[in-house]
Computed example of a mutant assay.
Amino acid sequence: MFGIGMQELIIILVIVLIIFGAGKLPEIGAGLGKAIKNFKTATSESEKKEHDKIDEDKKS
């Protein structure tokens, strides 16, 4: 996974816990989840528009 091992992930999690505290983690997780969902939606819409344009050009 991106060249990051289990030890690196644990270290990153500990640093995040120190910086933000345990109380903020659910808010951060929810925000990150929404951002990823929006990114995937935008990407799939962009790909669909591109494919539609290619199909339209083929018909011409």
Results as ranks from 00 to 15, higher is better:
residue 35 A to T: 13
residue 53 K to N: 14
residue 60 S to D: 13
residue 52 D to A: 08
residue 21 G to C: 06
residue 28 I to T: 03
residue 14 V to E: 15
residue 43 T to H: 14
residue 26 P to Q: 03
residue 52 D to F: 08
residue 40 K to W: 00
residue 18 I to D: 06
residue 5 G to K: 02
residue 53 K to S: 12
residue 19 I to F: 10
residue 34 K to E: 15
residue 59 K to I: 15
residue 24 K to R: 12
residue 42 A to Q: 08
residue 42 A to T: 11
residue 45 E to H: 02
residue 51 H to A: 10
residue 52 D to E: 14
residue 11 I to P: 00
residue 54 I to D: 15
residue 24 K to Q: 13
residue 31 G to M: 10
residue 3 G to H: 01
residue 12 I to R: 06
residue 34 K to V: 06
residue 19 I to R: 03
residue 2 F to Y: 09
residue 6 M to V: 08
residue 13 L to C: 10
residue 54 I to T: 03
residue 8 E to P: 02
residue 4 I to Y: 01
residue 50 E to D: 12
residue 4 I to F: 04
residue 17 L to E: 15
residue 44 S to K: 06
residue 5 G to D: 14
residue 5 G to R: 01
residue 10 I to D: 15
residue 39 F to D: 03
residue 13 L to Q: 13
residue 38 N to C: 02
residue 5 G to N: 14
residue 13 L to S: 15
residue 1 M to R: 14
residue 57 D to W: 11
residue 56 E to T: 11
residue 7 Q to M: 07
residue 47 E to L: 09
residue 27 E to A: 09
residue 37 K to S: 11
residue 42 A to I: 07
residue 20 F to C: 06
residue 45 E to P: 00
residue 36 I to F: 08
residue 60 S to Q: 13
residue 1 M to Y: 03
residue 50 E to W: 01
residue 15 I to Y: 04
residue 31 G to D: 15
residue 10 I to W: 09
residue 48 K to R: 10
residue 31 G to P: 14
residue 35 A to Y: 12
residue 49 K to G: 15
residue 43 T to I: 10
residue 41 T to D: 13
residue 41 T to N: 08
residue 47 E to S: 05
residue 12 I to H: 03
residue 22 A to T: 07
residue 57 D to Q: 05
residue 16 V to N: 00
residue 13 L to W: 12
residue 14 V to T: 11
residue 51 H to K: 13
residue 44 S to E: 10
residue 41 T to M: 04
residue 43 T to G: 01
residue 46 S to I: 06
residue 25 L to K: 02
residue 17 L to V: 03
residue 57 D to E: 14
residue 49 K to T: 12
residue 39 F to G: 04
residue 23 G to Q: 09
residue 49 K to N: 15
residue 14 V to L: 13
residue 12 I to Y: 07
residue 43 T to E: 14
residue 39 F to K: 06
residue 32 L to F: 09
residue 16 V to G: 00
residue 3 G to F: 03
residue 2 F to V: 09
residue 11 I to R: 07
residue 54 I to K: 09
residue 41 T to Q: 11
residue 14 V to G: 02
residue 57 D to L: 11
residue 28 I to V: 12
residue 36 I to Y: 05
residue 11 I to Q: 07
residue 24 K to H: 07
residue 57 D to K: 05
residue 58 K to Y: 09
residue 9 L to W: 04
residue 32 L to K: 00
residue 25 L to R: 02
residue 44 S to N: 12
residue 13 L to H: 11
residue 55 D to S: 13
residue 3 G to Y: 01
residue 22 A to Q: 13
residue 35 A to F: 13
residue 49 K to A: 14
residue 21 G to P: 03
residue 19 I to D: 05
residue 12 I to S: 15
residue 23 G to E: 15
residue 2 F to Q: 09
residue 40 K to A: 07
residue 44 S to C: 00
residue 27 E to K: 08
residue 9 L to A: 11
residue 7 Q to L: 06
residue 56 E to F: 08
residue 18 I to K: 02
residue 17 L to P: 00
residue 21 G to V: 05
residue 45 E to G: 05
residue 19 I to N: 04
residue 27 E to H: 05
residue 29 G to N: 07
residue 20 F to T: 08
residue 53 K to R: 14
residue 15 I to W: 01
residue 25 L to W: 08
residue 36 I to C: 03
